[in-house]
């Protein structure tokens, strides 16, 4: 037999085997797999298993996971890749309108017309579309001390999961201090700097944006608060104060609302935010 014949024979045999494999499988029951992501110690023969368990309870970080050679064990590696896949998918989601209705938030928009445009062009997320400008001019309550903005940013999940607790706590905190507030608004596909435009339109002293952070692997529901006192053309990034990691696994939303209202009170007194505010403190 020459080589060509041998190859043909082998391929033929393989095809027959493959067919019988398929047949065998189709006769069998489906094998079910259920993925679970529970945290556990996977260090081989540790000095003290209990203290690693305790350490794992003190941080969401991936610790106490052991190794094979210098690499991660298979399940831990796949956990990481699964969390990354989930975070990538989460970025593309929109905030559900029912959540906005529940919170009675007017639904404004930036100039971004698609997620792709929003991600790739910073400018479109930094200014309001025409309808939203008109709406604010007509319906925004002007001349109040504080304006609150809810921005989806990079995590719609953050808005859905965290803002329903945070917003009432913040409003309650401010009202308790006798601080006046304009109508809180939601702005779809918006970035932090859109707060400067809003502040100008409603003529408030201080504007605070509650904005969805880019999703991490440990959580996709984290939001940040960005505050600035009287933004103008000369404002710089260092004039903004940021509080990040507000979510149930970080700074709890209700606690954050109370804390933010204290900070806002101080900023209004100092008439400053950002580094200027930190230095006056």
């Amino acid at each position: 037999m020459n080589i060509e014949q041998i190859v043909k024979e082998v391929i033929k045999e393989m095809e027959v085997e493959a067919r019988s494999e398929t047949k065998k499988r189709s006769n069998n029951k489906t094998r079910e797999f259920v993925y679970s992501a529970e945290k556990r110690v996977t260090v081989d023969s540790p000095v003290n298993q209990d203290s690693i368990e305790l350490a794992q309870s003190q941080t969401p970080a991936r610790i106490g996971i052991g190794h094979s050679g210098t690499r991660m064990k298979t399940k831990n590696y796949l956990d990481f890749r699964i969390d990354h896949a989930a975070a990538q998918d989460a970025v593309m989601k929109d905030v559900s309108t029912s959540v906005l209705k529940e919170m009675k938030l007017p639904n404004l928009s930036s100039k971004a017309s698609s997620m792709e445009e929003y991600l790739m062009n910073l400018d479109v997320g930094r200014s309001l579309d025409e309808n939203s400008v008109e709406w604010l001019k007509e319906n925004g309550v002007k001349g109040k001390q504080v304006q609150i903005i809810i921005s989806d940013g990079l995590s719609s999940t953050g808005i859905e999961e965290t803002v329903p607790d945070l917003l009432p706590a913040l409003i309650q905190g401010l009202e308790g201090k006798g601080i006046t507030i304009g109508v809180p608004v939601f702005i779809r596909k918006s970035r932090v700097w859109i707060q400067d435009e809003v502040a100008r339109l409603v003529d408030c002293d201080l504007v605070v944006s509650l904005i969805g952070e880019r999703p991490g692997l440990a959580t996709s529901k984290s939001i940040s608060a960005y505050l600035i006192y009287r933004p103008n053309e000369n404002s710089v990034e260092a004039d903004r104060t940021v509080f990040s990691n507000i979510h149930s696994g970080g700074v709890p939303p209700i606690e954050a609302g109370a804390y933010l209202s204290d900070v806002i009170e101080e900023m209004l007194n100092y008439q400053a935010s950002g580094v200027k505010y930190s230095q006056m403190k």
């Binding site: 941080t59 969401p60 970080a61 991936r62 610790i63 210098t70 690499r71 999703p215 991490g216 440990a218």
Partner: peptide, 21 residues
């Protein structure tokens, strides 16, 4: 970074495992 996942800054960086590798 533990497991390559920074749980504060929400991004991925080289892990302790990668460092050793």
């Amino acid at each position: 970074v533990p497991g390559g996942d920074d749980v504060m800054l929400s991004y991925q960086d080289t892990s302790f495992h990668d460092d050793a590798s």
